[in-house]
Design a protein around this nucleic acid. Structure first.
Lengths: 143, 143
DNA sequence: AACACAGTAGACTTGACTATCCACTGATGT
DNA sequence: ACATCAGTGGATAGTCAAGTCTACTGTGTT
């Protein structure tokens, strides 16, 4: 996998929650069991998602987490960013100073396309798509 | 960047070498300066690439590294794999046991496309493309 | 009021990745 | 032969993400 563990966990947990519907409240312990994520570690991730405004939490008896807004308004990018994973737009692997269209690095042609594809995927895919089991974006190799 | 440092360095170094042409012999020290990669660390990466059959080395005075085969036969995937980075074909972020078309995980529709796109990119792009400044694969979002 | 539940917060440990260093081997030039 | 150059290999140390642990706060139940 190309995602850091934390980001993958975050996405996995949100996908699991999304599959239950938008309004349901979930406890960390249950979610940890269902997703096979270490409970205490998941707890940290959930807090990051609360801080990012993706989730809301309620303490105490009967508490738990629920989505802070409708599923179609929670993009993968939101989840990934909350987990500390961000795809830098103007970064090429050659990485010597700035790299842009006017002053492209050697790897620019190869990289920018892939980089852009990943960013689009993260920006266009939402938890609603997970709930629906659909794919909003398609990659067509060749051409 | 979604690549581990080692993989990024490997790609960067190979791109730099490819831009010089296929047959030229390069010393680690010079390559390290040009690519801004720590010299001793680059040395290790170069050895991995030798072990993987991507490069050939010559010791002693006038020695250095050169490509073991033509540029168009060195794929990004070869370089990345030599650097310890491999994109697992049948891995989804949900990651509970096996995940395939018959028994897809929640994230399967979203993930398999992107995963496949990255793998195709690594498999189809070669150092020759870097030397030419071209992109062999194109991602078409939407549709 | 007392208790149990569940999220909060931060310290702590672990381990993999990154990076550095040095002694060694082999090749070239004088 | 000898000195120098350049890759080899292993030992070592630093850094940061990943994972664990424990005490705290707030909420609901009895």
């Amino acid at each position: 996998m190309f995602l850091p563990q934390t980001a993958e966990y975050g996405l996995r947990a949100m996908a699991q929650m999304a599959s239950r519907g938008a309004g349901v409240s979930v406890r960390t312990k249950d979610l940890a069991e269902q997703t096979q994520i270490p409970a205490h570690y998941l707890s940290k991730i959930m807090r990051r998602l609360v801080a990012a405004g993706v989730l809301e939490s309620e303490k105490g008896h009967g508490g738990g987490f629920r989505f802070a807004r409708p599923l179609h308004r929670i993009r993968f990018a939101d989840v990934l960013e909350a987990c500390g994973f961000e795809i830098e737009p103007n970064r090429c692997a050659f990485g010597l100073g700035q790299c842009n269209l006017k002053n492209p690095c050697l790897l620019h042609p190869s990289f920018s396309e892939l980089n852009g594809a990943i960013r689009q995927w993260a920006a266009k895919t939402t938890l609603q798509d997970v709930a629906d089991g659909t794919t909003p974006i398609r990659f067509v190799p060749g051409a």
